[in-house]
Amino acid sequence: MEYIIKITQAILEGSLVTLKLFFTTLALSIPLGLLVALVRVSNKKVVKYITDAYIWVARGTPLLLQIFFVFYGLPSFGIVLDRFPAAAVAFVLNYAAYFAEIFRAGIQSIDKGQYESADVLGMTYSQTMRRIILPQMVKRVLPPVSNEVITLVKDTALVNSIGMVDLLRAANIAVIRDFNILPFGIAAVFYLLMTLVLTRIFGRLERKFSLHE
């Protein structure tokens, strides 16, 4: 029992790193993704090519490779980042690309009549987006966003590769040291608890937004 408490504590410390990365990524990648999506639906040629290329690279290469590139690769261009900032940069850029595509699809799924009625009521493009289109988009993108957010919880384990001691690494250290796989079980419980909480939160959000249907 005392052993379980001891390694749980160690894993708890590791999960602080996991949670910090998780929240940092969410807080930055969702606004960035929304920005990219808005740019992409605005039909401006040049920015469209740039964001196309960004999304292609961000979704077309492994996240692990992107983490390596930011941490090991950028120093050769004179940009040296510490482990956590390096991981955060890679995660934010990667996840923003996925969110951007989800938001773009959500925006484009809104009926053309919504733009037209806002238009004839005299609303500007930005008023239409803020007041009419985006609130309806949020409801439609909740299921895919919830998928991404749950994937993000588990993807954070990739920071092991640049030597950060996250939840999984903390468990792994205990497993190797004590020759006992119990810490992996505890780590699994931690991941499951986090995803359970998120599933509940998104379930509640979906219910809240479906009120007017």
């Binding site: 009926d111 009549g113 919504q114 037209e116 009625s117 004839v120 009521l121 005299g122 609303m123 008023q127 007041r131 009419i132 609130p135 309806q136 409801k139 007017h212 249907e213």
Partner: peptide, 29 residues
């Protein structure tokens, strides 16, 4: 703005109440 328009497919804002639909443009526009 001198012209009001009514569409075949209504195009009400589904996320707003009846009242919310009506007061939206007068307030923000």
């Amino acid at each position: 703005k001198k012209m009001g328009m009514v569409f075949q497919s209504f195009n009400l804002f589904p996320h707003k109440t009846v009242l919310g639909n009506i007061i939206e443009a007068p307030i923000i526009v």
